Computed example of a mutant assay.
Amino acid sequence: MSSRMGNRVVLITGASSGLGEEMARQFAAAGYDLALCARRTGRLDALADEIHASTGSRVETAALDVTDSAAVASVFHGFAQKYGTIDRVVVNAGIGKGAPLGTGQSDANLATAMTNFVGALAQTEAALEIFRRQGRGHLVLISSMSALRGMRKSMTTYAATKAGLASLAEGLRSENIRGLDVSVVHPGYIRSEMNAHVEQKTRFMVDTKTGVRAMVAAIEKRRAKAYVPAWPWIPIGIAMKLLPLQVVRRLT
């Protein structure tokens, strides 16, 4: 069964909460049909019902653990078969566990690496198979401002995985695949379930709707790279790349 006449289809992973959940709402409000997947299907199905009732968008859902590469391929291709096409894939699923390396908490770092990078690689593989077959598509990788430099302590592995996503995106752009657009989005401090433990008055923190609105705007423009929200993260991003590591360490 194909999508509604004229509607484009966005596939979003990690869509049951946080940035993924709000992206689903905002893309549907912009007229997209949705393919949503996450581990928590109860929340996912409730979101699908909410979105369909409020926007009329078609919403298909599936349970998915992105660390299961075979399941990623099966779910992505299943969505493509249901809709007949997938116009955009947003590689969003991720976790924020972490501990200083060598402190006996390797499980947290390995889980982060498996979900945020190996899982993202599996999603990218599946997305590119669909896009190559279609001859077009838009791949969006959700990275982080922390990807711009090495981070310390509990952020070390997380930042490294997000830097890996940025490198993955650049490699695909360098390949210059016909019909493929590749975007990497670097969110700054946007309130979500992942950072709910962070101090509410953290400087430059914006609410989920505001932050995701900036993300969606950048994605819709198909920017190769976007720091969002633009203020203050564009100038901060420039500074992070240029400042000595000892200064960056004090900033983070």
Score class of each variant (00 low, 15 high):
Ser2Glu: 11
Ser3Arg: 13
Arg4Trp: 10
Val9Cys: 03
Val10Pro: 00
Val10Gly: 01
Val10Ser: 02
Thr13Gln: 01
Gly14Phe: 03
Gly14Gln: 01
Ala15Thr: 02
Ser17Thr: 12
Gly20Glu: 01
Glu21Arg: 15
Glu22Ile: 04
Met23Asp: 01
Met23Ser: 05
Arg25Lys: 12
Arg25Leu: 10
Phe27Ser: 00
Phe27Lys: 06
Phe27Asp: 06
Phe27Leu: 02
Ala28Trp: 11
Ala28Glu: 04
Gly31Val: 06
Tyr32Thr: 00
Ala35Ile: 07
Cys37Gly: 08
Ala38Arg: 04
Thr41Met: 14
Thr41Ile: 13
Arg43Asp: 13
Leu44Pro: 02
Ala46Asn: 11
Ala48Met: 07
Glu50Val: 01
Glu50Phe: 10
His52Ala: 14
Ser54Ala: 13
Thr55Ile: 02
Ser57Met: 10
Arg58Cys: 09
Arg58Leu: 14
Ser69Thr: 13
His77Pro: 09
Gly78Gln: 03
Gly78Val: 08
Ala80Gly: 01
Gln81Ala: 15
Tyr83Asp: 01
Gly84Asp: 02
Thr85Leu: 12
Val91Glu: 02
Gly94Ala: 15
Lys97Ala: 13
Gly98Thr: 07
Ala99Ile: 12
Ala99Gly: 08
Ala99Trp: 11
Gly104Tyr: 11
Ser106Cys: 08
Asn109His: 00
Leu110Cys: 00
Ala111Met: 09
Thr115Met: 04
Thr115Asp: 00
Asn116Glu: 00
Asn116Ile: 13
Phe117Asp: 00
Ala120Gln: 11
Thr124Pro: 05
Glu125Pro: 00
Glu125Thr: 15
Leu128Ala: 00
Ile130Ala: 01
Phe131Asp: 02
Gly137Thr: 01
Val140Pro: 04
Ile142Ala: 06
Ile142Tyr: 05
Met145Ala: 12
Met145Ser: 06
Ser146Asn: 09
Ala147Cys: 03
Arg149Cys: 07
Gly150Phe: 04
Arg152Thr: 06
Arg152Met: 10
Lys153Cys: 05
Lys153Met: 10
Met155Gly: 03
Thr157Phe: 09
Thr157Asp: 03
Ala159Gln: 01
Ala160Lys: 01
Ala160Met: 03
Thr161Trp: 05
Ala163Thr: 09
Ala166Ser: 15
Ala166Trp: 06
Ser167Val: 13
Ala169Pro: 07
Ala169Trp: 03
Ala169Leu: 03
Gly171Ser: 12
Leu172Tyr: 06
Leu172Met: 04
Ser174Glu: 12
Glu175Gly: 00
Asn176Gln: 15
Ile177Ser: 03
Ile177Leu: 14
Arg178Gln: 12
Arg178Val: 10
Asp181Phe: 12
Asp181Tyr: 14
Val182Ser: 11
Ser183Leu: 09
Gly188Tyr: 05
Tyr189His: 10
Tyr189Met: 14
Arg191Lys: 13
Met194Ala: 13
Asn195Leu: 03
Val198Cys: 00
Glu199Asp: 14
Glu199Ala: 12
Gln200Pro: 15
Lys201Ile: 09
Arg203His: 07
Arg203Gln: 13
Val206Gly: 04
Asp207Cys: 07
Thr208Phe: 02
Lys209Asn: 12
Glu220Thr: 15
Lys221Pro: 06
Arg222Met: 08
Arg222Gln: 13
Arg222Trp: 12
Lys225Gly: 07
Lys225Leu: 15
Lys225His: 14
Ala226Asp: 07
Val228Pro: 02
Pro229Thr: 10
Trp233Cys: 04
Ile234Asp: 08
Ile236Thr: 06
Ile236Ala: 14
Ile236Cys: 03
Ile238Tyr: 08
Met240Glu: 08
Lys241His: 08
Val248Asp: 04
Thr252Asp: 04
